[in-house]
């Protein structure tokens, strides 16, 4: 028990340092930590990635103290509305359905297409067996097309399914597939699908003040070009 508290305290400490000079209230940032390059857990066991860097910079500009919280993807929205953290910053595309339940800040990356990865470049996607992570916008898209959808619990398993021949191709965010294409004979197909909007930060609908604060901070990063530089560094999306 002691050990647990020590390490978590150390984690909290490092998370706090990023914005130690902020004296505003503490904002808890919820993320998944399993979605490179957006957010992932690095070798040191800390949350890292594009959104970690972005979030810390936003908090610095908004003079907020930010703490990072890891949460399972499935319950990430229910835990936000129930107040266990204050924002979702987890590569979440802005969709009308989500917008009904929570509010989004302005997008920090432009809408990007979803891509396919298969074992050969001439795989016919239409009518094929397409793997996707369960309950993602990509899964909904494949189901709508009437192709054979096969759903896995994690992104890793969807890619594995293509490698072992269970599925013809996997449909997912291009930035994620970029990290696997070229390994083990996987290639990215020409065809892309324009699904989902840009990616924004989720906040509670009753939390308009926080939304305005982050909107302003994102705008200032867009204006001075730091956001584009960050996007380029992490190769998460196209630039503004």
């Amino acid at each position: 028990m002691k050990k647990l508290i020590l390490t978590t305290a150390a984690l909290a400490l490092t998370a706090g340092i990023a914005s130690a000079d902020g004296h505003g209230k503490t904002v808890r940032m919820g993320t998944e930590g399993a979605y490179a390059p957006w957010n992932f857990v690095n070798d040191a066991g800390e949350i890292d990635g594009f959104e970690r860097e972005l979030g810390d910079e936003l908090c610095k500009r908004a003079k907020l103290t930010c703490e990072w919280v890891k949460n399972d993807w499935d319950s990430i929205i229910p835990n936000l509305v129930s107040g266990n953290y204050d924002t979702i910053i987890a590569g979440m595309s802005i969709t009308p359905e989500r917008d009904e339940v929570i509010d989004f800040t302005q997008a920090y990356t432009p809408p990007d297409p979803s891509a396919y990865v298969a074992m050969s470049a001439d795989v016919e996607v239409e009518g094929g067996v397409i793997a996707a992570q369960a309950t993602t916008i990509q899964a909904a898209f494949v189901a709508e097309q009437g192709w054979t959808l096969v759903e896995f619990a994690t992104p890793d398993e969807t890619v594995a399914a293509v490698k072992n021949g269970e599925a013809d191709a996997v449909l997912a965010d291009k930035s994620f597939l970029d990290t696997v294409a070229g390994t083990d004979g996987l290639v990215m197909l020409e065809r892309m699908e324009q699904i989902g909007g840009g990616v924004g930060m989720g906040v509670r609908e009753s939390d308009q003040e926080l939304k305005a604060t982050f909107d302003a901070a994102i705008q200032s990063m867009k204006d001075d070009g730091t956001l584009n530089a960050m996007i380029a560094k992490w190769e998460v999306a196209s630039q503004w």
Partner: peptide, 26 residues
């Protein structure tokens, strides 16, 4: 209950949102 939001006053939060992370984890 505001729409789908569950909003209580800051003092009622468990644990307080200003508490360090280890309190949240505990």
């Amino acid at each position: 209950r505001q729409g789908s939001d569950f909003v209580v006053c800051d003092a009622a939060k468990l644990p307080l949102s200003s508490s360090p992370q280890w309190v949240h984890e505990t």
